[in-house]
Amino acid sequence: MDRLKIGLVRTPLYYFYLFLCELGAIARFTGTALKSAILPPYRRSITRRQMDAIGVGSLPIVTLTGLFMGLVLALQSIVELRNIGATAYIGRAIGTTVIRELGPVLSSMMVAARAGSAISAELASMTIGEQIDALRAEGSDPVEKLVEPRLIACLIMMPVLTLICDMVAFIGGWLVACTVIQISSFFYWDSVLEVLTPAFVWGGAIKALAFGFVIGVVSCYSGMKTSFGSSGVGEATTRAVVISSISILALDFLITKIFIVTWW
């Protein structure tokens, strides 16, 4: 293996090799984190604290995101629907877009920016301060102690936050629908509820769950793989947000494709 590495130094193949190594490392990390999250013991009190930090902490920003998303989406939909004389369908338009796409994607991007960055900054400063080494020296498993509670908290809170984001977006849409095109409230909510079919709701929930998983794994991995030096924390944080966001978008495409083929 060493000779292979030396032979390839600085060729594109070498970087591809490094990329594969990194992918392998992430996959292994994901495996151990998942195993730890599924198997007991569960760190209930630490997990609860993380749920508070990630969930309650992200609530304001997710609510605001939902509100403006609903407002803008309604305005844009009205312009298009007017052209075809179908403004009555505004509830449907907003309902499907929000529940299937924008709700899960935008709220998880916000959680990645707020909570994911905080997770990776915290773990990165623990890595640099040798606290992770100290944890192992004291006989603990850092994955079990640090990664597992954060991952579980992300998994539980992301669907909840997405749900809240969706609700607020519907309300935003309703405000615009009532004031700009004077549609009746009953008609608006009726058509929103019409698209809340199990297939769509489950689709949104599964997306939220998957994105929460990505945020948890990427942020923890990035924090614990921090290089030493004062710029380490900043780099880890940036990396966590960028990689989470891009992974969320890519995964969104994949999941959407699967759902369209199978269910929607």
């Binding site: 040798e130 100290a134 020296a137």
Partner: peptide, 13 residues
């Protein structure tokens, strides 16, 4: 069986 005292203490913050 061992105790390690890290360079800067490495206390859990």
């Amino acid at each position: 069986q061992m105790a390690m005292v890290f360079q800067h203490g490495a206390l859990f913050d």
